[in-house]
Design a protein around this nucleic acid. Sequence first.
DNA 1: CGTCGATATGACCAGGTGGTCATAATGGCA
DNA 2: TGCCATTATGACCACCTGGTCATATCGACG
Lengths: 213, 213
Amino acid sequence: MPRPTWANLDADRRERVLHAAMAEFGRHGYSGGSLNVIARDAGVAKGSLFQYFDDKFDFFAHVAEFTSLRVYAAMEASLEPPEHGSVVDHFGKLVELWIDYMAGHPLERAVTAATTMELDPEVRQAVREPVHRLYAKGVRPLLDAAVARGEFRADADFDALLSLLVLVLPHLALAPFEPGLDAALELYGTEGATRAARGRRLVEMLLAGVLAG
Amino acid sequence: MPRPTWANLDADRRERVLHAAMAEFGRHGYSGGSLNVIARDAGVAKGSLFQYFDDKFDFFAHVAEFTSLRVYAAMEASLEPPEHGSVVDHFGKLVELWIDYMAGHPLERAVTAATTMELDPEVRQAVREPVHRLYAKGVRPLLDAAVARGEFRADADFDALLSLLVLVLPHLALAPFEPGLDAALELYGTEGATRAARGRRLVEMLLAGVLAG
DNA sequence: CGTCGATATGACCAGGTGGTCATAATGGCA
DNA sequence: TGCCATTATGACCACCTGGTCATATCGACG
């Protein structure tokens, strides 16, 4: 947890530190990210960072959680409630929003990538857990509404579906903006199909297994 | 590329270096892996590593490619040709084999995780490209046979499917053996369903979107 | 034996790491 | 003004990093 000093902090200063940290951790991940670089880029003494956070891990964890909350808030705001439309519509829209958001927010995208790709089990668990909670919170209602509407097969495996979605979603956003990152996937080809259309097609494919009729 | 010295090397010594490198890179990834640790664990002077490889990157790339070749060989050997059975059978069997192999080969599993999770675009691209080639080579025939048998819809998007499979497959293997790694996914619950059955169900879900009828 | 190319070695290097701490600056209140 | 808690600072620490290189060892051949 960040120290009280972090909350009391002048907003400009906090913003500068956060910005520098997102850029650095986003580029090099947790273990590769340098506190020296962050301090320099933020225009702050390195010692100050340790006034705000216990240690590097605490710092990274906060940056990760802050980022996921910001992303979630943006998604939630522009997502219509699941009263009308089909699940495919909802998830298609969700993926479209996600991709567009990441396209317009490279910093958030990079941090999302860094946490998604984190290898160290302890770091990963600590950093991904709040993200997964948010995903589940945002996605579950869409599924519930679809169930109420009878859109799903009786024997649909929701846990498996939710797992799969949570697994695939971040990668859907990451692949298209990181040329070297899974370029071999060619998830988003250049043959004119828009990102949205491709995203939609993938969603249809992912959901086909649980749809009724 | 490894230097000629590496090929001329005494087999025992090469095996020791490879083993230590797989363990270290598997645990800490490329940037986190320490050459000092590898040299110590292999019982070899650090300077020797630079007689075998140009630099750390060359070393890691070789370890990654060696590992993916070994995994591919094992899978290929125990996979029956796609003459009989359905695509779902084939992919179910494939995932089952994959998971069982990884369960019995923690070293290969760890290196696979490390390359799958690599963040740095340059490193990632160099290291993943041969892996993707192998995946495509192994998976494509199964799809082609299924197409010949008319198992797929006419409008099935194979590129999207292949991308999705290549994206998901490594994670399917990684999640269940890394307690902290996506524990929140609970991809493999403890309610008695075997790993194989769960894998099969996921495959069915993944393929439902492209199957005919 | 001696010679010579190939290989092994580890002290050594410059530079970077996360983290500490004594000191200084700050800002609100009396 | 003087006081005091809060915050900012960067020199400093021990340690680790990837990489080098002069030297030693090895092994085959004559």
